[in-house]
Simulated assay, not measured.
Amino acid sequence: MAIEQKNILIVYHTQTGNTGQLARAAERGVQAEPGCAVQCLMAADASLDHLLWCHGVLLGTPENFGYMSGMLKDFFDRTYYPAEPYQLNKPYALFISAGNDGSGAAREVARIAKGYPLVPVAEPLICRGEITPQHLAEAEALGQAMAAGLALGIF
């Protein structure tokens, strides 16, 4: 019996490169899990078709003024209503590069994701300050956990 490939979409925005480092680490984590494919896209390039392709989503944003980035919000704005008929009900996890505490960005992403619906499967990974090797390891682990959870049918 063939095992169905699981597809994971990583949607992120970065200006300084910090969130981009986390996205690439998460992508490496997904790639470490057999039977999983990944698309890692800047929020401006991601679309409803990408959401429909995937089985799970990793979202990444810098914390901007206590909120998610404008480009991640734009992704939500462009896909939210077109996604309504599909009742996506897909698992998601979030990573944030934060200069402050990241809680505002996490809260607002969760509020919007609930409407799709997207279902949180992990606590948000909030990386405060400069990106460290520990942050990158945690982002990689988050990507691999999402992939393993999907591959095993946990979510």
Rank of each mutant, 00 (worst) to 15 (best):
F75N: 08
E63A: 02
H50I: 10
A122E: 11
A139P: 02
A2P: 15
R111W: 00
T14A: 12
G115Y: 11
L41K: 13
C40A: 08
Y80S: 08
A43Y: 10
D101F: 12
L58K: 03
P91L: 06
A151R: 15
A105G: 08
T79Q: 03
L59E: 10
C40E: 05
A83Q: 00
P62G: 14
G143I: 06
G129Q: 08
A93S: 15
G35C: 12
D77W: 07
Q5L: 10
G60S: 12
G104Q: 09
F95Q: 01
V121C: 13
R111S: 06
A148L: 07
E108W: 03
E140Y: 01
V119Y: 10
L59Y: 11
D45E: 13
G20T: 03
P133I: 04
L136Q: 05
A106K: 04
D74G: 10
Q15T: 14
Q5W: 04
A32C: 11
C40T: 06
H135Y: 01
M1G: 13
T79R: 02
G129H: 01
L125W: 08
E138K: 05
G153K: 06
L48K: 12
A44N: 06
C54L: 07
G70P: 08
D77E: 13
R78E: 07
P34A: 15
Y116D: 12
V38A: 00
N100K: 08
Y80Q: 05
M42Q: 14
A23I: 05
D101G: 07
A26L: 07
G104I: 14
D49K: 14
Y67F: 11
T14H: 07
H13G: 13
A37P: 01
L52W: 11
L152Q: 14
A23W: 04
A106R: 07
K73W: 01
T16Q: 12
P133R: 00
I8H: 02
F95I: 03
A122P: 04
T16R: 12
L94S: 00
Q5I: 09
Q134W: 01
Y67M: 15
E123M: 09
F155K: 06
A44G: 11
I10F: 04
L22V: 10
Q134F: 05
I126S: 07
A43F: 09
Y92E: 04
G149W: 02
E63R: 08
N100F: 14
I96Q: 01
L41T: 00
V30I: 14
G29I: 01
F75L: 06
G143S: 09
A141Y: 09
A37T: 09
M1F: 06
S69G: 08
A37V: 03
F65M: 14
G56I: 05
E84W: 01
T79A: 11
V109Y: 03
G143L: 07
Y86I: 04
Q87T: 13
Q87K: 15
K114Y: 03
T61H: 14
Y80G: 00
L136D: 00
Y12D: 07
V38R: 01
C127M: 12
T16E: 10
M71P: 04
N7A: 12
E138V: 02
A113S: 13
A26H: 02
L72N: 03
I131E: 10
A139D: 05
A98S: 15
P34Q: 15
F95D: 03
D101E: 15
L51I: 09
A105K: 04
